[in-house]
């Protein structure tokens, strides 16, 4: 081994070893473990083929969880992108208010999601929570026992917390995208007499395609990773109404000791993430200058 090769090997191997062993290997094993029936760590594993996968596929709670993820991605995603683009637009002109917004907008992102979950659990508390007490003062009707104990309402409450938590990052992302748009293009459209909305919908929005792609990947990853928020706010209740794939996986594996079935949920989660990512990518991540090429991806 010459010194150069030895150097490369020496510098690279700690990272590659740790990453391969603790990240890469478990990634592959996920699929393998879904083929066994086993409980916890010590007990032996019994090969049962695809039985876990079929059990989980027929499980109604799994369907609820999958549906919740899709709803969160679609509704939450639309809300996030709409708000993020508008706020990023408003931030383009430097004002004092804009500067302070930029300073604080990532707070909900950098503070621990555990804290965010607990905080929003309190926010929705019917007797002293800020939102419902405030709503009562303003005369806005809401269910008497609060919202976290009712199926549809609880999902909505989680979505609000999710959007609140994630928004700042997307504002930053779209802000960077808008800044990258060539100002000459915008000026030319102004000379041509395009109004604000037309300018946005015909020029800025399509030109944001690469940022939209990044946003989609992060959105799918964020939504599929929803776990802590739900556990802190509703404990995936009432009656499994707010389950997500990860909360259900955790419940199966660590509360019901059905590790094989939990692994099957993980396998499905991977697949769902891939499919959702691909669909969302196609819907809003098209490159307007070269639509054919991006459609092929």
């Amino acid at each position: 081994m010459n010194p150069r090769t030895r150097f490369i090997f020496g510098f690279l191997s700690p990272a590659v070893f740790l990453y391969g062993f603790l990240v890469g290997l478990p990634l592959i094993q996920s699929f393998y473990y879904s083929l066994f029936r086993w409980k916890g760590v010590s007990s032996n594993m019994k090969f049962i083929g695809t039985k876990n996968l079929t059990t989980i596929a027929a499980d109604p709670v799994m369907h609820t969880a999958g549906l919740n993820q899709i709803l969160l991605l679609v509704c939450g995603g639309i809300m996030i992108i709409m708000f993020a683009v508008s706020i990023a637009h408003a931030l383009q002109k430097p004002t004092v208010l804009g500067k302070s917004v930029q300073a604080i907008m990532l707070f909900p992102q950098v503070v621990s999601i555990v804290v965010i979950g607990i905080m929003w659990n309190f926010m929705w508390n019917p007797s002293y929570g800020l939102l419902l007490v405030g709503g009562r003062k303003l005369g806005i009707p809401y269910p008497k026992d609060g919202v976290l104990g009712l199926a549809g309402w609880a999902n909505m409450a989680i979505m609000v917390a999710f959007v609140w938590h994630a928004l700042g990052f997307y504002v930053m992302l779209f802000g960077a995208g808008l800044k990258n748009i060539d100002s000459e293009v915008i000026e030319a459209s102004e000379i041509d007499g395009a109004s604000g909305w037309v300018r946005f919908s015909r020029i800025s929005w399509p030109l944001l395609w690469s940022v939209k792609r990044v946003a989609i990947i992060y959105l799918v990853s964020n939504v599929m990773g929803t776990f802590v928020l739900v556990e802190m706010m509703t404990k995936h209740g009432p009656d499994n109404a707010t389950q997500t794939l990860l909360t259900y996986m955790y419940e199966k594996g660590w509360e019901s000791s059905r590790m094989g079935e939990a692994a099957a949920i993980a396998v499905y989660s991977f697949m769902i993430a891939m499919v959702l990512g691909a669909v969302a990518w196609r819907v809003i991540g098209r490159n307007p200058e070269n639509p054919r090429r991006s459609a092929a991806i």
Partner: peptide, 20 residues
């Protein structure tokens, strides 16, 4: 492959990781 690790929620592999 390091970049690929950025893209998936790491809790998805918790079962094999726990066992490991």
């Amino acid at each position: 492959s390091f970049m690929g690790g950025l893209m998936f929620p790491n809790f998805l592999v918790i079962i094999p990781l726990y066992l490991l």
